[in-house]
Amino acid sequence: MKVLLGIGGSDDSIRALEKTVERTADAGDDLTIAVVDNPAVERSREDIETTVGDVLGDHGVDATVLRLDGDPGSALVDLAENEGFEQLVLGGGQRSPMGKIQIGNIAEFVLLNSHVTVTLVR
């Protein structure tokens, strides 16, 4: 399956990276990882790309890694729809101190707008 993972550097997106790379290793998916600019995150894109490289290396998985500029939600949806992806994967939200799941702005936009199947990783 042709899978697009969007990662902006939040903790839930790093968890989505780990789980998706694990699944790719098991299922033999064709994985593309798009690093987006999440304004809510302080981590730099270089730092995120290093993490992506480490996780891919740990699992011996090959993936295309690219950078997406502009609004992250719309850039991800655009890429997924125009490049024939079958699934768009994102982090499934952060937890509040209370333990409530809080869906981020990128996931909210993607869920409401994507014509490609969306997976939120918990």
Binding site: S96, M98, G99, K100, I101, Q102
Partner: peptide, 18 residues
């Protein structure tokens, strides 16, 4: 928003936190 969780072990973990 996911709380309360749905299994006893998860309920205990969650209560432990709050």
């Amino acid at each position: 928003q996911g709380i309360p969780p749905g299994r006893e072990d998860r309920i205990r973990d969650w209560l432990d936190n709050i």
